[in-house]
Amino acid sequence: MAETEILSSPGARLVDVVRRFFEGDVFYSFRRSPVVIVAFAVTVIFFLGAFLAPWLAPHNTFDAATLNLLDAFKPPAWKADGDRSFPIGTDDQGRDVLSTIMYGMRVSLLVGFCSVALALAIGVTLGLLSGYIGGALDALIMRVADVQLSFPAILVALLIDGLARSFLPRSMHEELAIYVLVLAIGASNWVQFARTMRGSVMVEKGREYVQAARVIGIHPAMIMVRHVLPNVTGPVLVIATLALAVAILTEATLSFLGVGVPPTQPSLGTLIRIGNNFLFSGEWWMTIFPGAALVLLVLAVNLLGDWLRDALNPKLR
């Protein structure tokens, strides 16, 4: 039948989805808000700078061969004794601060994204089960969540990190530090996803399209994944964005406290900690620039999250 032929082309479907996005309300509210456009631009620049660091950074700070201790403590280029090839100065080991920030942001973002992904996976699964199945399972999951919430995230992270340190040999711990961090931060963040999911799922579950699927006899797992899940992604997406900012900060805090990633592959938090030692001896650039990068990144991500929350909320539209 010629009339139904159009349905089959995946290319046409993609074009259609893109067109619907640009004509949609979310894109409209994006275009209307300069603050959000700036925040988006800052985020994109930081992300690109971080992920393309090996190609974009002026120096490879992890290559010991290129390091020269004579370059240590160079101030930013515009200072009297600055060096053109180190635009914002060098640290105590002669590493270019701009390059360390770019590489450091890589680590920060990696930990941030992975831990949010982990929290998302745990939280969405448990929230979906809790909300859809209900009953004793729901009660159990929610009590576990309550207990989890009564521990501050940093404390949980410190605990997991401490356990990892005492049970793993030192060399292995350095290697696994990032995974430990991801696990620690991810495990302490799943509750908000689970709670949000549970609430949204309970609303959707009562709607008639879910009942229609049940009348057909669709398997509950299929209903959860194919019917309920696509309709509850909005609020979870918003929380994920805000959680990303929190995860980056938590990582920075842990690294600043010295329990995060090892100094051999520093994150923004590690850089701030190292620079902090020299703050009062006049080498302010070593801590101020990584600090500013962290603040800007978190601020931009938070602004995007706030905007997304408003844009996806039909009541505020």
Partner: peptide
């Protein structure tokens, strides 16, 4: 089979 009351809730908004 069944037909539901609210035509705005009985069709999954994400499906064609």
């Amino acid at each position: 089979q069944m037909i539901f009351q609210d035509p705005f809730a009985s069709l999954n908004p994400r499906w064609r």
